[in-house]
Design a protein around this nucleic acid. Structure first.
Lengths: 225, 225, 225, 225
DNA sequence: TATGAATGAGTGTTCATTCAT
DNA sequence: GATGAATGAACACTCATTCAT
């Protein structure tokens, strides 16, 4: 509406990239500079992630976020264009992370069964380790603005397609059955991944890795010719 | 009011079977009242289901529901104690329906593989035919009041347990592998069911029944010893 | 954005017509009905008019309006779609009133000089008697939404054109000079009318009628051939 | 940034004459500072004038001003004590300019009719050439702090009085009618001047000078004995 | 049964201003 | 001189719910 937005929005990776999430050496900087260099937006994003997962996006007020993060609303809106932007950053972070990991596993030098199994198990482990992101992901997508939804969906599609390519590779090679379209296989698996937050109990009998191994094993068995 | 009704398979009449029309004594009602019996709450519930699925629970105002249903707020609050109540009714209806269908399949006189396959496929077909309910189910549970959530979860657990019992029966009988705990198997399958709304396209290549057959087949294959 | 607006906006005359501004006999109605029949919106409109004139549109908060009117925000938004709507109602009321009066004078059975003089004086008197409306009119037009501005401008143009027609009639008849385009003459006069609020002092030496007579006389003199 | 600058006659240089460039000792400044001397405040004032006219005072944020002027907030607050101050400077500039011009015309060596006519026409021409100033002047006075309003009004009064003195001089000399108090005559004329922005169209049939001549002629005719 | 006016606490967002650097 | 992160109070507006009728 106005042109005053000095580059604040529409740049999904800004507060989720290395600058903000990894330990750069703060030695050369004063306290204030260090604080200014991302501490506040990072804290806001972490707090928002937690609260969105706990109470839902609509159930979390901006006031609650800033109170929990120990800053004021003005600070939040200094870094994020809107509450919706904050949510978008959560998605951006997750998407980037998962894509990186999938690419690594898919490009590995190993038989396709092994690569698919590893990738399938890895996404389970990381999803369990970031259950907050997971619960937000599948529950709050519709709260994003239409264009941001579109963007997220596009990135998600890329991810799915990489995964599907693995399945198809195995099918072509004859190590996987092609009775079921690869796309359905992928959706089947990711349905269970997205719903981990519904049923996975950290205090349950199974560790994240055990759950991951079981789910990956099921996937592989369901692909046996 | 919206153009979203085109091509919907689940229609308004599926609300005919609920408690608003059951067990009333029609003798005491006037002709007009009889004609209208249950009409208003049924329409409200159908409208709310549609809107909750379209815009989310928090994104739908009570005013929008009553406007779309062609009644007034007073009428809504006459039949439902709160907006939350309305959501709860959606869950109650879905749960009752699915439990009934599962029980029928599970109690059938057939080999366990057949019973599990049929039940697994059926829940897919009915979920696709009632995608609105499905999308609400997995997305809006956290909006229910804690006690209603507890209640829904309890009913859901009963449902899952009946399904799991089928799996365990097959495992004991040796027709299913017991490599994976039955509970995980159930969660794996229902993850994909809950996420149908994310990826199932009515205009896609596969009919609901075909999708259901594929998913059931995958489930069965993943259980092969 | 939503279709829930049950006919609340876009109907400029609703709270400014007889129902709300004239004394209907409340005898047949209960207190509540009488109160409901326009008391609240009328009071809101009157209060808003006063405050907008005193402090400007942007300088008046919705909270101040409702506090001064003795109601709550909810009540205001029950009757008016927005703060902007409230402003629009002020314009609608003024425009309707002035057009009616001008039409009466212009259609009278009298020589054109007389009709123009009477109309010119009358608008001065009524503008002074409703200085709040006048000050709002010329100062806050740009705060209206673009479409409402357009609407107001269109009605204002109609008014000006009727006035201009009087001038042109006299010019054709030769009783007024046509040295100056009629349009300029009209703008000249209404500039002074709109600015009455800037300089007219109720406690000054001149009564509204005297001021009106002077300004009308100046107009007529400036039109002498 | 906007396309509104097309065909503007008043340019940025009219801010060259104000207190930011007068009376500084250039000796103490570096070449760079000298080059920049007064540049920033002048640009800020020009930008603010344009934006205030376009969007209103309240409708223009400080951020928008500094963005459009290509500086930062800190710079603005370095030169101007507040947003209100910026507005005040607009008034000060206009008032100083108009007073200078009026004085020149009023003190000229010519018959009073001629001097009044010239002054009356000149204020029209300069108002049209600086429509931004004009629209701000009559629309935003109430946004000034009370004391600044008082100050502006006092200067405005001086201006009006000088103009009125011309009218009275003619009335005493018998060349103008004294039917109408001189004060009313002045207000009549300046009403039309202040409202030029409402109706004057740069793309209309009449040039600024033609409009000015017409309005001055009307004034003179209305003063004929 | 059903109405709809009214409530009041809450929402996300804006913005002039300050100040350590 | 100039920066821009941060403030905090204010803003317009929403909405589930109540209740006299």
């Amino acid at each position: 509406m106005t042109d005053r937005d000095n580059g604040r929005t529409g740049d999904g990776d800004r507060y989720t990239d290395d600058r903000y999430t990894e330990g750069r050496e703060p030695a050369r900087e004063s306290g204030r500079a260090a604080a200014a260099r991302g501490e506040v937006p990072r804290r806001l994003l972490a707090t928002a992630t937690r609260l969105f997962a706990e109470r839902g996006y609509e159930g979390t007020s901006v006031q609650e976020i800033v109170d929990a993060a120990g800053v004021t609303k003005g600070a939040l809106y200094h870094y994020f264009g809107s509450k919706d932007d904050l949510l978008h950053e959560v998605y951006a972070r997750v998407l980037r992370l998962q894509q990186q990991r999938l690419d690594a596993f898919a490009d590995a030098d190993a038989p396709v069964e092994r690569r698919l199994r590893d990738a399938a198990a890895d996404v389970v482990v990381t999803s369990i380790e970031n259950l907050d992101d997971t619960v937000i992901f599948f529950r709050s997508m519709h709260q994003l603005s239409p264009e941001k939804q579109k963007q997220v969906r596009a990135e998600r599609r890329r991810y799915h397609e990489r995964f599907r390519a693995l399945v198809e590779e195995g099918q072509r090679a004859g190590v996987f059955t092609d009775e079921t379209p690869a796309e359905l296989v992928v959706d089947y698996h990711f349905g269970s991944v997205h719903h981990l937050s519904t049923w996975y109990r950290r205090d349950g009998r199974l560790s994240p890795q055990e759950v991951a191994d079981h789910l990956a094993a099921m996937l592989l068995r369901s692909l046996r010719p």
